Computed example of a mutant assay.
Amino acid sequence: MLDFIKNIEGDKAIWAVVALLALFSFLPVYSASSNLVYVVGNGTTGGHLVKHAFLLFLGFGIIYGVHKIPVHFFKGLSLIAMPIVLVLLIFTLAQGTTIDGANASRWIRIPLVGITFQTSNLAAVVLMIYVARYLSKIKDKVVTFQESILPLWIPVFLVIVLVLPANFSTAAIMFSMVLLLCFLGGYPIKYILGIVGVGILSLTLFILTAKAVPDLFPNRVDTWISRIESFANPEDTEADYQIERAKIAIASGGVIGKGAGKSVQKNFLPQSSSDFIYAIIVEEYGLLGGFVLMFFYLLLLFRIVVVANGNHSVFGKLLVLGAGLPIVFQAMINMAVAVELFPVTGQTLPLISSGGTSSWMTCLAIGIVLSASRKYEVQENKNVDVDEANPLEILSGQL
């Protein structure tokens, strides 16, 4: 263990925040898993806790392994991974998996170990690295929109179009993060606004097509619409059951909460150990616990910005922002859903919620951020990459 700790490199604050969040996650996961055991009849609380521990152990193995990779290697890896991701997304969507009559083409099953893998999570990380690579490549050039269509926007839209039918919220987050990264990378704002228009038009066409041919994507558009209607007019729908239970949990938690494991709403709230785990945390640890948890995510955001600003290469800056910002953004969305500031999205709370591939891809992104934060990386690769020619260069004045 001591040898392992000695070999840890990169930003120590990020390591500390990630470790604290992971350690804390055992309490709410163990508590909320009673819903799966006594209500759903799935396994035992101890079994769910062991599974969570195993997934986190593998996740930290991913962080450790990835953070040892020199940051400039991710440029080439993104080129290799992008076609693989597209093939996986096509395969996942083509399965046509249906759960209770609804299209749930989000997962593929790994045969030997029986684990389901959500390919959109991997696609999100790979896409951000790919976009960071392109933006760093054109940093000193005057780029036209036509020149960027094939190398940038075609891959972006292919990934998002393949994710959209089964997972609108993930596709929307990916699209938003790509636009934000393009803005930070100095891509012309007029082109970004044009892409926003194309995105809105494409989404409208998709919805109209899905409405015209209901069997093409069963119930997906109806689910989106019902969630938005439930958010806008909660008194007029029955789809707000989860939100109502979440609000009851938060309200009953008070300032200091009921105490660890004493949540009542975990027995009534669906997805209490994943999508709505923040409500259970506030019920058990109160507003104080909820704000402390939010503080740690904001601290993680602060350290991500510090690492990005301190990196000496444009690719390193953009890579850190592209890999790190979506983690905090997803956490804020999860919390916002629990307090009804945002429609139900199905996004988990990073490093806290139970789940496999979601936590692994979060760990992959954290490993990438830590790789870029290694102090010797700049010196070691100073002559390897043209992006590192000027150590005082700031990312287009945006950071």
Rank of each mutant, 00 (worst) to 15 (best):
Y130P: 08
I250E: 02
L370G: 07
M128L: 14
V50M: 07
G10Q: 10
L269R: 08
E284D: 04
N334F: 11
G324E: 06
S230P: 11
M174E: 07
L370W: 08
V18D: 01
L299I: 10
L364N: 00
V125C: 10
S34M: 09
E284P: 04
M1G: 08
Q95F: 03
I327T: 02
N121S: 05
A104Q: 09
R374M: 07
V314C: 14
I115V: 15
G76D: 10
M294E: 00
I304Y: 00
H312D: 13
L20K: 04
I129S: 11
S252K: 08
G322K: 04
L181H: 01
G259Y: 04
L269W: 10
I366Q: 00
I189E: 04
E340W: 13
L21Q: 02
L93Q: 10
P83R: 13
V213Y: 01
V255P: 04
M174L: 12
V384S: 13
F342S: 04
V328A: 00
V213S: 00
G397N: 14
G261D: 04
G186L: 11
V37Q: 08
S78K: 12
L112A: 15
V198L: 08
F342D: 03
P188A: 01
A232Q: 06
P391F: 13
G43M: 09
N167I: 08
E244W: 06
K6F: 10
L2T: 12
M361L: 06
K12I: 12
G47A: 07
K262D: 08
S373C: 09
A124S: 12
F168C: 03
A13H: 05
F342G: 03
L122R: 07
K375V: 15
A94L: 11
L21D: 02
C182L: 13
D3T: 15
E229R: 11
Y134P: 04
L301Y: 01
I108D: 03
S78Q: 11
M335W: 00
L58Y: 03
M335L: 00
I352K: 11
P155G: 10
G96S: 02
I333T: 03
W153E: 05
F295S: 05
K190L: 06
T223E: 11
L20Y: 07
R374K: 12
I192S: 05
F91Q: 15
V178T: 03
S226Y: 02
W360P: 01
E393V: 15
I84R: 13
I129E: 11
V178S: 01
I250V: 11
F206Y: 14
A132H: 04
F296E: 02
T204R: 06
R220V: 09
A338V: 13
S25E: 14
Q95T: 10
Y187L: 09
G194T: 06
N167D: 15
F26N: 08
L216A: 05
